[in-house]
Amino acid sequence: MNRRQTRLFAIGSTALATIVFVGLTIDSHRQFPELTNADTITPAVTRGKDVWHEYNCINCHTLFGEGAYYAPDLTKIAQHRGEPYLTAFLKDPSQFYDEQRHRRLMPNQDLDDEEIASLIAFFEWVANVDNQGWPPRPILVAGSSIPGTSMTLAQQDASGPGSTDETLPPGSRPVSEEDDPVALGDALFNSATPTCSACHSIAPGVNLAGPSLAGIASRAEQIIGSEEYQGDADSVEAYIRESIVAPSAYLFPGEMYSANGTSFMPTTYAESLTSEQVDQLVAYLSTFK
């Protein structure tokens, strides 16, 4: 090739690639409204996006997998955590995580109520964007979707009422009486004997020995309104409480979960947990909308 030909190659290939790229960009714009549910971008969502930028969240977190790697991805956070939990967390992260234990902590951002509500609306919108199903498996902030991996056997044995900080699994934070009931319930979920997290994940679609408890609050509402339901519960909270203390009152469909009208979930919790502890678990689980 001589010089002119090589130059022609440089110009030609650049021009060709540019034309195709611009064409596809135009077509993408045609599809953006549908893929991103543009009609649901309310003023609150836009405001939430601005708050997200204003507080530089992107330089610790990733969103759609883009950002920094110091803190968990938040693309689907609105599907994992309900509004009450996120509100409580964003008001004071140290209520939910312990810096000594996790070696990092989200600094309190001093967000006001309006900012928090907008952020949550923004996360809702993000979680529903059609992004080819990424992430392929739920990304959890803490804990585990595999039974047992978040604690050693010794820890499982030593947990429950009366356990000390040292025996808690790494995914949970030492709590004290003054803490938010939701945070207490979160800790208990990982430390009751036998631990709930051994059978239940809080990630959507990850069913272990027991069904995933993601979205349990919305599901409870549907169940108590349905014909099959024979139990006594008349509210979401009452339903969850009943599921813990009397597992067989309603059976979650599926052969792997029950047989002959009896649930596989332990019936010991009515005895081993105090009534307050059950309340805390209920408070925690009912945040999963």
């Binding site: 392929p136 498996r137 902030v141 585990s144």
Partner: peptide, 10 residues
């Protein structure tokens, strides 16, 4: 974290 499903912090 991504394949086995252990939490981010853990």
């Amino acid at each position: 974290e991504r394949i086995l499903g252990l939490g981010y912090l853990d």
